[in-house]
Structure formats: C-alpha cells, structure tokens
Design a protein around this nucleic acid. Structure first.
Lengths: 206, 206
DNA sequence: TTCTGTGAATAGGTTCACAGCT
DNA sequence: AGCTGTGAACCTATTCACAGAA
C-alpha cells in the first residue's frame, strides 16, 4: 500500500468518532464539509484522506454514515479486538487499565505486570498484577499484539526486549526514552511533559 | 517571530532532555550529529531547528552544553515556573497530579477541581479537591497560565469557558472533544485511544 | 445542482551540500 | 580538519479548482 502519513491516520480516527456521533443523531448521510467542520480541517483534506483508500462517497450527496463508518473501522484495523498487556502498575498504569476509551474501541487490557514484589499479586480493576519475569512465557501462551509500557525509564528498554521476544508487534510507550525495536515492531511514544512544553513554548513566544 | 512548526518545538524539547543527560555525564560540548543520533533525526535537522532562534554553536567544535541548555530553556519558556490547575479528580487526574515529569520541568499543579461532591474536600497528593464552582474566583485571585482538563467530554467545554474567563492561556486537554477557545488561548489535546488506533492501523496495514 | 474525486498548484518541512568560522 | 549555519534542492502535505457522477 502507498505510504500514508501519520496525520492522515489521526484524522481518519477523528472522522470515525464524528461519524459515530452523527449516527447516534440518526443522520444517515454526511458531506466532507460537515466532517471538515467538526475536525477543524477542510473538505478537500477529508476527501483526499479518504481517497487514499478508495472512493466511498456519492457525488452530489455525500457519504453514507454507516458505510463510511464500516470502511474506516476496517482501514484502522478496528474490526477485531486486541489483547493488550500493560507493564508498570503505577499511577498512570492504574489510570489506563480502567480507561473506558480503550475497551470501547476493542482494546482489551488482559494482563498487568510489575517488578515490585509489593505490587505483584494485588488486584487492579479485577486483574491480578503478575511478576514481570513471567511475561515472555505468558505472551507465548497468549499471543498479544499490543503492549503499553508505563515503567520508569531505566526499566523500559529491558521490558521492551522481553515484549518483542514474546511476539508483541506494537508498543504504546509512556516512558521518557526512545525504545529500540526491530523493524517489524511499531512504537508510539507519548510524553506528557513534552506536551506541556509545547504549551509553555506557545506562551513564551506570543 | 517567524512561524515555528510543532515538530520543531517537540524536537527542541527532546534536545533539551539529551543535553541534560550529557551534562550529567560531565560532557561540556556536543555536536549536532550527537544530538541527532539520540533524537533519531539528522544533524542538518538539528542545526536547522536551532537556526530559527539564532546561532549558538562554534564551527569546528559544536555546542556548549550549558549554554545550549540555557538557550533551549529560554526558547521553550522554561526559565520560569508555571502554576497549573487540574480539573477532574478521576483516575487520570490523580495520575497526573503526582507525575514527577511536570514538577521537574517547573509545572506546579497548585489546585484540583471536581464537580462531584463526594470528591470535593478529599486530599490528592497533599491538595484538597475544590468544588469546580469556585474556579473562576480562585483563578482571579491566583493568576494561572496553564490548566489541564481531565473531565468527561460533556463537562469539558463548560469547564474550558470558565478557565478562559479566569484568564487561563493554555490548556492541556484529555477530554475526547475539540475545545472552542478564543484565539489567544492555546489548546493541546491528548487522546490515548487515538494513539492506540495509530498502532492498530499500523498492524492492519503491514 | 450538489458534492465527490483527483490532477495541478502551492505551501511547508526536510535534506543536501558547501562556504566560512574556529 | 572539523563542525556550524544556511541557501538551494528536494520531498511531502495541503489546498485549489474543476470535470464528472448522482
């Protein structure tokens, strides 16, 4: 497939949310202009984004809400559910385990790991925290595509190596380091402090 | 000032982190190539990013670590501390209140608000949760530049309007809606489910 | 007539490559 | 000799504008 930019993918996710909202309102048809207004972009951008994957609209009419919803879910890989493991039973980990947005979208946090013996065995949102030393064995028994790394920086690379060894193919990383992974593994890093710094930059440079 | 792209700002934040690490190792000088290696970019990119703000290096030598650190802290608006208020005393709010990365960078979470009477009055990391109805009055007494919105979607716009009324100029938004704000207020939205969807897209389109 | 789909034009961001300072 | 600073070249993303389907 042709190379799709990250910003296109993010917009597709947004369009999908808007479509779900439109569907809830009982609308059956939507134009690129309406999607654009919601997404703070342009109608041409919406049409271009969609055009990378085919032509789903009807000229003079717009897009069928249920049809485009289905196509976007398909494009974004959301027609299936994902088993997700979470490594790091700290505050952020705890918040993510019960984050409703994940389950709604088919991302099921199925296991939590930590290295701290005081945390191992405790319950988090119905899941028993397991010792991280079991992780490779567990992953081999229960194939898992996605992991969320919420460990301190010093543990993150080691954990990542074990995740890769266990067959994980995508990692959402909250640790403030760049993770080294083989070419067939995708990493997406989120860094809250960095987000705040884009704000302080904006405040300082008005 | 000339328009600086978001990706340049993000890279500057990263360079600052690397510089701090180099400083801790006792290095006093660093080349654009070394910064590039750490940041998974190119030396030309590093130099170009810096060149928007001046010329801080010495030809043949590289950059002085303490000097460039100071310049970046200045550029990113990190020479001062920021009073930050957090709205929404849920799981994610709780995790963010004690997130060490914020305080390290000079972002001080100084107050937490919630609308739920059962949460109001409880203690979170040493702070007493206040009723959100006091927020405008509090902000007028204690001018605050940055707010973090961690409420459910249905409350986020209302809270945002109050923050703006109270003089907040930058908002880090975790609620899954686009916030409407006046032109002089910056909003940066973070959406975890959307990040996971970029991963499922990558898995589905290999 | 309305709104899509898409080449062409434009804008924006990245990389190249080299002159010039240390 | 080594590494910066920066125009120019290149590449990618967005916007324009219009032909064509409903």
């Amino acid at each position: 497939m042709r190379k799709i930019s990250g910003s296109t993918v993010r917009r597709l996710s947004l369009y999908l949310r808007f479509l779900e909202q439109f569907d809830a309102l009982g609308k059956t048809t939507i134009s690129s202009a309406e999607l654009a207004r919601r997404g703070a972009t342009t109608s041409a951008q919406v049409r271009k984004d969609l055009s990378f994957f085919g032509s789903f609209g009807k000229r003079g009419l717009g897009y069928s809400v249920p049809e485009l919803t289905a196509r976007l879910r398909d494009i974004l890989g959301l027609k299936r559910t994902y088993r997700v493991v979470l490594v790091g039973a700290g505050r952020i980990g705890g918040a993510l385990v019960q984050y409703p947005g994940f389950r709604q979208r088919g991302f099921h946090v199925a296991a939590i790991y930590d290295r701290d013996p005081r945390k191992v065995g405790s319950r988090w949102n119905g899941l028993v925290v397991r010792d991280v030393r079991h992780i490779v064995g567990d992953l081999k028994k229960e194939p898992t595509d996605i992991a969320i790394v919420v460990t301190p920086a010093d543990a993150a690379q080691d954990v990542t190596d074990q995740l890769v060894q266990g067959g994980v193919k995508a990692i959402l990383n909250f640790a403030p380091i760049r993770l080294a992974v083989p070419a067939d593994v995708v990493v997406k890093s989120v860094n809250m402090a960095l987000e705040l710094e884009t704000l302080s930059f904006a405040l300082a440079n008005r």
